[in-house]
Nucleic acid binder design. Structure first.
Length: 797
DNA sequence: TGTGACTGCCC
DNA sequence: ATTCTGC
DNA sequence: GCAGAATGGGCAGTCACA
């Protein structure tokens, strides 16, 4: 906890000094007042004024019509894409309920952190009584704000222009230097949501960025964070700590509805953002506080992240409510989606990075593109992506972009030990033959794929060590033992390095690898060496940096040599990933079997020379992964019965999003839940199954359904269908009940990575996989044998 | 002090 | 994690 | 093939509340 501010933790200050200047958290820049016509201040001094309405519904309707028609002009028709062609909404009830008062929960201290330039005096809630004349006054003020928004709305489509035809002053309706209004970003989100083409989306985002660069460059970092839907770089460990449940609460309270109603509408609409949208227009007799700015929103997000301890949930909730109260138009929708970290508009990091690169080209005052470049836009996008993959810190990249330009970006922002880079990933492969085909005549190596936790270990000159997870979370506090081992077993020749490895639970007495599930029971925070119950072996397979030199541009062959010569192996503590170099199909097949036999998931296959650089965070052709369960007719496959389902969200709105599956216990004729399943369906199959099963809905689970009491499907079914499902593993489950009593007295079995293979039209539910079979399959898994043989067959090369 | 709901992060 | 889909 | 968005099991940590 308390790891909060992007980029300014003490530990990181060394790398981020420069960025402090522009860190969104430390607004060193003057704050700008909203122009007076945007404010409702004058009236708000009068207590009665807060009774005014913010819902001139006729006007709203007018506006949304205008907007809708404006949209139609510019775009033919957003087609069948599901979230976009959603059915009409339930009409929310209780239009007359007033908003609860939203007290700002900020402490004096927290206020300091907030940029209060746009803060509002939070209105107290008032009874529904109205004064007509005051209403009029307020409505006319409101009109002016709406007017201004209307202007923005009508111009927002200009963001779709190709960058060459776009001028940054085309859309902005705020003054230069003024804080960027949140409505601008929200409208842009809305625009993007109605596009499906990545190119157009990139253009829009590019133009959004250019607009901000032109008016309020100080806000650029913040816009970028919002567009990225992040609050801080991953390794800073800033968590919002809010989820669905809390948002529902906040939404209910802010709109004067019950949680039950909100939940119901959530089921129908498949998106809490849409619920917020639908709710907003249906309530609130209140005057709006000042319009939201992006800094206000962003700073509030950080406040939310910061709340902890007693009453923190209430405080977080109140922050959300405060934002909702101030939100207009589509703002609530995107506020909620941002809080959920599910923007769902077809915009994510890669597109943002591309747009950032392109935007920089258009605002380039610093340098011209290098001469031979064919397409500066593409090249710039590439550069930004590349740089971000190596230094995923917007607080550094954005300022560098502003001050020195894209073409200098690789120089101004580069690989920095202490900042985690995205680990290189591998693509699934269906079999050995596919590998041999793909890598043809290249030299390649196969390594065991260990079933543990990915770790990127940074060792700096000064002897300090940091450990980062696959998702760039700082895990150092979880693995003090690893820190010690690394320091002990590194060779003196290695004075600084970045190591890529897998941390695997290990039983040092029996000298064997333990399953992932054991590893995951390790404590995670502030672990003390003596308290460690699950030991870990480091399986190292790559080296990204050594003695002040980045190695990522080097071939694997070279990197591996550096790796091998930089550490001393010690069984059960630090080992190099078992590897062979072979292109013999049968040999590889054997090696795969050996890997599985050694409690590994399968193999990772990597080219040694050609295309053998380390490509941070990219799933590249260069690395392939091969697991038994990827192969057809191999791996655990079960025939299971859908006995319940959950309503889909987002693009699954209107169909079931996931199903509860069961195996069949023929002894007591029970269907025992074994897992949920939500992947492997094509859209068509999902729709077919949803349609088919909708007619099998029953009001209550059958008496002969056995399932954990925390499992609450939205609907239950008659046992009718049988689906073939593939899984990577079977695990003892705290919630499922399959084969209960057969391998564990009161725990059932579940599946790891379940996915649909096909529907077994030929089978009846009683012919589904039986509990005995499930138990058998579980027991067949090597590590589940009570007395495991010693099987350390280290292949080396 | 214990429990359960919720959240984030591993896979 | 796995999988599917539009571009 | 990329990028995005659906979805899985299961663990520790946190917080509200009994």
């Amino acid at each position: 906890m308390l790891r909060l501010r992007p980029c300014v933790s003490i530990r990181n200050i060394y790398f981020t000094r420069r960025s402090k200047l522009l860190s969104p958290l430390i607004p060193s820049l003057p704050f700008f007042k909203s122009p007076s016509f945007l404010r409702t201040h004058t009236l708000s001094l009068n207590p009665i004024s807060s009774m005014s309405s913010s819902r001139p519904s006729a006007f709203d309707a007018l506006m949304s019509n205008a907007r809708a028609s404006a949209k139609k002009k510019t775009q033919p028709q957003p087609k069948s894409n599901s979230p976009k062609k959603r059915k009409t909404l339930d009409h929310p009830q209780n239009p007359d309920k007033t908003l609860n008062s939203v007290q700002s929960p900020q402490t004096d201290e927290s206020k300091k952190l907030i940029n209060t330039s746009d803060s509002s005096n939070e209105p107290k809630s008032e009874p529904n009584s109205r004064s007509d004349s005051l209403l009029k006054v307020n409505q006319s003020k409101k009109l002016r704000v709406e007017d201004k928004n209307a202007g923005l709305k009508s111009k927002i489509v200009l963001l779709k222009k190709k960058a060459g035809d776009f001028k940054p002053e085309m859309v902005a309706n705020w003054e230069k230097g003024e804080r960027v209004p949140f409505i601008f970003v929200s409208l842009a989100f809305d625009l993007i949501a109605n596009e499906s083409g990545r190119i157009v989306i990139t253009d829009i985002v590019c133009n959004v960025l250019r607009t901000v660069m032109d008016t309020t460059p100080e806000d650029l970092v913040v816009v970028v964070y919002l567009l990225a839907n992040k609050v801080a770089p991953a390794h800073e460990g800033v968590e919002l700590g809010i989820g669905e449940a809390l948002i529902i609460k906040a939404l209910a309270e802010a709109c004067g509805r019950t949680e039950k109603e909100v939940k119901k509408q959530y089921k129908d609409l498949g998106d809490l953002g849409l619920v917020a949208k639908a709710s907003r227009s249906s309530q609130s007799m209140m005057r709006k506080p000042d319009p939201l700015t992006i800094t206000k929103v962003f700073n509030t997000f950080q406040q939310i992240a910061k709340e902890s301890g007693k009453d923190s949930q209430d405080k977080k909730k109140n922050h959300i409510k405060a934002l909702l109260v101030a939100a207009t138009d589509c703002e609530p929708q995107y506020l909620i989606r941002l809080l959920q970290t599910k923007l769902r508009i077809g915009l994510a990091e890669q597109t943002l990075l591309a747009a950032l690169g392109q935007a920089a080209v258009y605002t380039e005052e610093h340098s011209t593109p290098p001469p031979h470049i064919q397409s500066p836009l593409e090249e710039a996008a590439k550069i930004v992506k590349q740089v971000y993959s190596v230094l995923p810190v917007y607080d550094k990249i954005v300022p560098a972009l502003l001050s020195d330009g894209v073409w200098n970006l690789p120089k101004t922002c580069s690989f920095t030990p202490g900042v985690p880079v995205g680990p290189m990933l591998a693509k699934p492969t269906k079999g050995v033959s596919e590998i041999v085909t793909k890598f043809q005549d290249m030299e390649f190596t196969c390594e065991y794929k260990y079933d543990g936790e990915r770790a990127q270990i940074h060792y700096l000159e000064n002897g300090s060590v940091e450990i980062y997870s696959r998702n760039a979370e700082r895990n150092t506090g979880k693995f003090p033992d690893v820190v010690a081992v690394i320091s002990r077993l590194k060779r003196p020749s290695a004075s600084s390095f970045i190591l890529d490895c897998e941390l695997v639970a290990y039983d040092r007495e029996k000298k064997k690898i333990l399953p992932f599930q054991i590893l995951s029971t390790r404590a995670r925070k502030n672990v003390v060496m003596n308290d460690i119950k699950v030991n870990v072996c480091i399986y190292a397979f790559d080296m990204l940096y050594l003695n002040d030199q980045p190695l990522i541009q080097e071939e694997l062959k070279v990197r591996r040599e550096h790796l091998y010569s930089s550490f001393q192996e010690e069984p059960g503590c630090f080992q190099f990933a078992t590897a062979i170099t072979s292109n013999d199909l049968e040999e590889i097949q054997k090696f795969l079997d050996a890997a599985v036999d050694a409690s590994c998931e399968g193999l990772i296959i990597k080219t040694m020379n050609k295309d053998a650089t380390y490509e941070p965070s990219r799933r590249s052709h260069n690395w392939l992964k091969l697991k038994k369960d990827y192969m057809e007719n191999i791996g655990d496959s079960l025939d299971l019965v859908p006995i319940g389902a959950f309503h889909g969200r987002g693009k699954r709105t209107g169909v079931y999003g996931a199903f509860l599956l069961a195996c069949y216990n023929s002894n007591n004729e029970e269907f025992q839940s074994i897992c949920k399943i939500g992947t492997g369906f094509s859209e068509q199959v999902l729709e077919e199954r949803s349609d088919s099963l909708r007619s099998q809905v029953i009001p209550k689970p059958k008496s002969y359904y056995r399932f954990g009491d925390t499992i609450k499907p939205d609907v239950w079914f008659e046992p009718k269908e049988v689906w073939e499902v593939k899984a990577a593993d079977l695990t003892i489950s705290p919630v499922h009940r399959a084969a209960i009593g057969e391998v564990d007295p009161d725990k059932g079995i579940s599946l790891r990575f379940p996915r649909l293979v096909r529907v077994r039209e030929d089978k009846s539910p009683e012919q589904a996989s039986s509990s005995e079979q499930v138990a058998e399959m579980y027991n067949a898994q090597k590590h589940n044998h009570p007395n495991n043989q010693d099987d350390n067959d280290d292949v080396d090369n």
